[in-house]
Write a protein that binds this DNA or RNA. Structure first.
Lengths: 218, 218
DNA sequence: AGTTTGCGGAGCGAAACGCTCCGTTTACAA
DNA sequence: TTGTAAACGGAGCGTTTCGCTCCGCAAACT
């Protein structure tokens, strides 16, 4: 390292940055893109001034948030691919995805200007997921009428958890663990619905990829 | 009828009321309880003044909206009970529930003052759903580890459709039918996950009913 | 002691909010 | 034709909330 010594003030600044990002994730989960910088700073236990020293605008903070979240998605997909069992790999990705909660970020992603970095990460995540789905389908453990787009939409839908957000908003944090457990059960139901063989074929036409989260591609 | 004649102005007023409620449903689906009266009136093609002639406050409009939506829920559950086949009956209720979209209303229900009428309708809906679930379970078509609360939460989660709301918000109404189709597929997956016999038992403890949409009861 | 660096938050102009108020339009009786 | 009452749309009010700037202060280093 060129800079092994850490000035205490600099360490504090980095801790603040982490707190800001964590707080932003929480507030955005509840309020979506309407989340105010004041609320984010307050939740992080940090002054507004400090927020604006690190991010020139609210949009810059959101872009960073989306970028870091995409990292999590890529990790989840690649960890899924690392599993030897195709079904376990897919299930790992989906369960991780429900936790990451693309849904909450989806509304933010629709409001920010897309950077090259974000578009690139999005592409990498898509490739990994495609491989994951293709492998599960080839192994015959995923019902064959489910498309990758179906899965993306399912994750988007189940990742957003209005129940948990609402509880947090009402300050009933004591109930949050129970809510997380409840959501896990729901996702387990959905996972069971994905397994081959399927009791009935899915209705309608396979969904078009354009439906995914606003624009992303184009 | 005591008043068979309809003054044209009065008919217009009633049409405006219907348009207001329909618009409120749409705007609330996107913006939740933050939906502004101006947005609702504009979407209904009606002046703000007309809105406030019929509803003294925004809250009064929202209470009416919740009440009418609960009527839909009661209908869906009772129609489900009318089905001879227990599974078809349950599926009918769930599919209708996904369409009604309790999720969107959940955020509104948390902000309004509960009237006696609303609490009463909520009770009636609960009773009908309990009967529906009990019948399906007794017939052995519903996996036995799913509780009524699980189902309520599932409906709440899948009823809210961020994808459709976002498309509408962006004015891409051309894509909405495709999105509705996509959501139908997702719900079909979840339905298949509910059938008996289950591939694996559900994880965790059965969820407590207190988790449902804020307060409703108490 | 002086300098640098990061800090918190009061306060700015702009925007959005719920709601009131009023001039206009329409249907119908005189 | 004219008078009246009902329903209309929307400008504008006071208030709140927003993103963001700016500045006085404290801690670390020289």
């Amino acid at each position: 390292m060129t800079e092994p010594r850490r000035a205490p003030r600099q360490a504090e600044a980095e801790a603040n940055d982490r707190a800001l990002l964590a707080a932003a994730r929480e507030v955005v989960a509840v309020d979506g893109a309407r989340a105010s910088v004041a609320a984010i700073a307050a939740r992080a236990g940090v002054g507004i001034g400090s927020l604006y020293r690190r991010y020139r605008t609210k949009q810059e903070l959101f872009q960073r948030l989306v970028s870091l979240t995409l990292d999590r998605w890529i990790d989840a997909a690649e960890q899924g691919l690392a599993h030897a069992d195709p079904w376990e790999g897919l299930a790992h990705y989906l369960l991780a995805g429900f936790d990451i909660g693309q849904g909450s970020l989806g509304s933010v992603a629709g409001t920010i200007e897309l950077t090259e970095e974000i578009a690139d990460k999005n592409r990498r995540a898509d490739e990994a997921v495609d491989a994951l789905v293709a492998r599960a389908r080839a192994a015959g453990v995923l019902r064959p009428d489910v498309t990758t787009t179906d899965l993306h939409l399912l994750v988007e839908q189940l990742g957003k958890s209005p129940m948990i957000d609402q509880l947090r908003q009402q300050g009933r944090t004591d109930l949050v663990p129970a809510a997380v457990n409840a959501r896990t059960r729901i996702t387990a139901i959905a996972l069971d619905g994905l397994r081959a063989p399927a009791p009935h074929p899915l209705p309608g036409e396979p969904p078009a990829p354009e439906l995914l989260s606003g624009r992303w591609e184009t």
